[in-house]
Design a protein around this nucleic acid. Structure first.
Lengths: 219, 219
DNA sequence: GCAAATTAATGATTTATTCAAG
DNA sequence: CTTGAATAAATCATTAATTTGC
């Protein structure tokens, strides 16, 4: 019914305006996201894309963008929710100190951080790369609390989160230890590449690779 | 000793870590940039890449990144320059009010700017930007202000730009009306597509297309 | 002269903003 | 209002300059 329509498939170039995901596509993407995938590499993108094609037209960039946006907006919602919570709490306590933050939260330091404790748990995957020169703390702004594949525990400066305990753990996130598509054994995405490769020596596993295909230029 | 070294081109394999542009590549890129190219679309990227390959190994993403970084950093340098100018001006006038800023601005601004003659500071092409949707305001927050690299704290006080109007119009920039490689008639890059196409209704001409190439994976 | 130690540049990634289609 | 798409800003990480002690 409401599926398969979307962007009018391939033939027409008339209204390729923007990708219109089907319900199945979205739910599958969310599933994958909930498995812990945040920034799929080109290979993963491709597999996801291929998988979702059966539900309707879709391209790699759609997958890529979807994850970008979903990640960002989940975080945003989280943040908003946190602020909401803080606000309520504050209101409840009428704590003068916290009020200061609430009112000035936007411009200065936003309580964006608040990282989930789940990250450090992935030893099987997470190597220990980190900045080589990490002997000196380099977190001027804490960092952006990236998910899997990044950032071991970092001290962080006294921020709001240090003062007010978080109540809503930002996204459970499973350390992507399982396949993306358990239902489809045809695809073995995460399974095969479970290794870390965080050390850049392996590869830049980001989207750009998709169109650069490294190791091809030098005869 | 001022030449020949560069990236040696051939050896390459030693460290795939990151692209090391040769002098020729850089100067060519700058030339192209100075012609007005800021965000080359995939086609352009490919052409540029192909052209630069004769000087050494290079990939599409290198070109893409180079433009991104160059654009951003030119803008940054310009801004720094502005601040520098403002500082001098201030100093000249001994304006009591401004002096306040001067004292707090010193730390962020370091003599880093006009320091290395590396290859930077192209003549007078200080940049400005032309985002496709430029009908709107561009720098809503202008918050970074202390770009030079790792800079510790931030004044956050009323910034100078808010008080003193800018005097240097951001970026002359030619509307990329000419070919990228006049010397090589083989390539006719910008020639055909000189339009603005700011309305994205034409196409998403951005890097992502590069690896999505609509209508390619579908057999 | 030179190599270790610092510092500056800059290539590569990630995140935040923005715009507009639906 | 939601969200796909696109770009700019911020950040990270590595390489080249350079300084420094020998």
């Amino acid at each position: 019914m409401e599926e398969s329509v979307a962007a009018g498939s391939s033939s027409s170039s008339s209204s390729c305006s923007r990708w219109n995901p089907t319900k199945e596509q979205i739910s599958t993407l969310e599933e994958i996201y909930n498995q812990g995938v945040r920034t799929p590499n080109p290979k993963e993108i491709k597999e996801i894309m291929e998988r979702l094609k059966v539900y309707g037209p879709i391209e790699g960039k759609n997958v890529f963008y979807w994850f970008q946006n979903h990640k960002a907006r989940q975080r945003q919602r989280q943040k908003d929710h946190h602020q909401q919570q803080l606000r309520l709490q504050q209101h409840h306590h009428h704590h003068p100190y916290f009020n200061r933050f609430l009112n000035s939260i936007s411009p200065p330091i936003s309580p964006t951080v608040v990282r989930s404790p789940a990250y450090g748990l992935v030893q099987s995957e997470i190597g220990h790369f980190q900045n080589q020169h990490s002997n000196m703390v380099v977190s001027p702004r804490t960092d952006q609390a990236l998910p899997v594949m990044k950032m071991p525990p970092q001290p962080i400066s006294p921020r709001i989160e240090d003062v007010v305990p978080m109540m809503i753990p930002p996204e459970p996130i499973h350390p992507r230890t399982l396949d993306l598509f358990p239902q489809h054994p045809t695809l073995t995405l995460a399974a095969g590449r479970a290794r870390q490769q965080s050390n850049h020596e392996l590869a830049n596993h980001n989207f750009i690779d998709f169109f650069t295909s490294p190791g091809r230029d030098q005869p």
